[in-house]
């Protein structure tokens, strides 16, 4: 397990869209390093020929009949939105000036 640098932690935070303060980055770098060192224990298990399990139940796709049924009203959904306008979610600018 390579030790994880502060720069890598900053990169991960960016990927995860987490704005972290500098002291948080330092603190997390140490903790992540420690946790990753511990979970690396899984690599000790000889499991080359073992199939992975992603889920506890052996389920494949579950289908239902394609029939219309009631759904949530726009009003009830938008009531919980941070901002709404004209019956829609209002969001901050998503495209840069140059786009």
């Amino acid at each position: 397990m390579p030790s994880i640098s502060r720069e890598e932690v900053a990169h991960l935070a960016h990927l995860a869209r987490l704005d972290l303060a500098p002291d948080e980055l330092d603190h997390l770098a140490g903790q992540l390093d420690q946790i990753l060192g511990a979970v690396a224990q899984v690599t000790e298990v000889a499991a080359d020929d073992i199939p992975p399990t992603s889920h506890a139940l052996p389920l494949t796709n579950v289908f239902r009949a394609d029939e219309p049924r009631p759904c949530l009203t726009p009003e009830s959904v938008l009531a919980a939105a941070p901002a709404a306008e004209d019956g829609r979610f209002r969001v901050p600018q998503i495209l840069g000036e140059e786009q």
């Binding site: 991960l12 995860a16 997390l28 903790q31 979970v39 899984v42 298990v45």
Partner: peptide, 28 residues
């Protein structure tokens, strides 16, 4: 935050097979 960061790391390319994939085998 710790768990989001850990998961982001475990699922990132280069580590996926060694850690997340291996963990799924251990689950089996």
């Amino acid at each position: 935050k710790r768990r989001i960061m850990l998961g982001t790391y475990a699922l990132s390319s280069g580590y996926y097979d060694a850690y997340y994939g291996q963990a799924q085998k251990v689950r089996t």
